[in-house]
């Protein structure tokens, strides 16, 4: 693996992470650091282990019974897999899925879902937190009069920003985006990207994307995964101008994948 010199403070450190499903490896010996308050883009063809990587970071992978994980994932220096209970980890490391999945209830109830599960029920407190989360997700102005509508009625782009607001409401430190724009039109995509760029001031962001142009537009750093291995990681500006590995060059310039 080729890497640039260490950047700023490390939020998540990944050491020799290997994940297999029913004995079939999906991630092989991945070691990388995710810097604080930056956007790390992860690119790579299908089946290169990108989504598996994300699901390992917040331990959603625990729910796949055939999975086996070795290596370490350190959040602020603490191994996330030491804890018996991943619930507090998932409050710190939120995830946005490829397809927006609003729960079949109102917009408001979607935003406060995570808060209610923490036992917060005060109307005023929830109202304030919901407004803040929706504002941070650039949805408040469009939607402030529609909080009691069914979330499924929103447009695809609004639904995805609702999912972002829902995640922000839990007040995480890290947000994982798993191909968040793959189902969206270019204008909605631009809004999500704009949101991500502003969010990185307060959050650390990992963005898995199939769109190399998107990686180039928003990522501070980019990592290239291939067949479960990390091929190369570095500053986005450098990766896209002078990749050090031939395979990275081939992928970025569209010669395969």
């Amino acid at each position: 693996m080729v890497s640039d010199a260490r950047g700023p403070a490390v939020k998540i450190g990944v050491e020799s992470l290997t994940v297999s499903f029913s004995g079939k490896p999906s991630l092989r010996d991945v070691t990388l650091d995710i810097p604080s308050h930056e956007i790390l883009s992860i690119i790579g063809p299908a089946n290169s282990g990108k989504t598996t990587f994300l699901k390992t970071l917040n331990r959603l992978i625990d729910f796949i019974p055939t999975s086996r994980v070795t290596g370490r994932v350190l959040l602020d220096g603490r191994d996330v897999r030491e804890d018996d209970d991943p619930v507090s980890l998932r409050r710190q490391v939120g995830i946005i899925f490829a397809l927006p999945v609003p729960l079949p209830t109102t917009v408001f109830e979607n935003v406060v879902y995570g808060l209610r599960r923490q036992g917060k029920n005060g109307k005023k407190e929830l109202d304030a937190l919901a407004e803040k989360a929706l504002t941070d997700a650039y949805l408040w102005d469009e939607i402030k009069d529609r909080l009691d509508e069914q979330a499924m009625k929103l447009s695809g782009g609004q639904q995805q920003r609702l999912c972002i607001a829902r995640t922000l409401a839990v007040d995480p430190q890290v947000i994982l985006f798993d191909e968040p724009c793959s189902a969206l039109d270019p204008i909605s995509t631009a809004k999500i990207e704009e949101a991500m760029l502003k969010l990185k001031k307060n959050y650390t962001i990992v963005l898995v994307t199939n769109n190399t142009k998107q990686a180039a537009r928003v990522g501070d750093r980019t990592a290239f995964f291939l067949m479960g291995s990390l091929v190369e990681m570095g500053l986005t500006s450098r990766m896209f101008t002078s990749p050090r590995d031939k395979r990275t060059d081939d992928y970025i310039s569209g010669r395969f994948g």
Binding site: L60, F63, R90, R91, V101, L103, R117
Partner: peptide, 27 residues
Amino acid sequence: VPQSFREVSLSLGATKLQTIRHAVLPH
């Protein structure tokens, strides 16, 4: 009930029991 509802609920920091109670059973 779609698996994605469970994933969403868990990813928002709900426990498994809360997920069943609030994201699965109502639907």
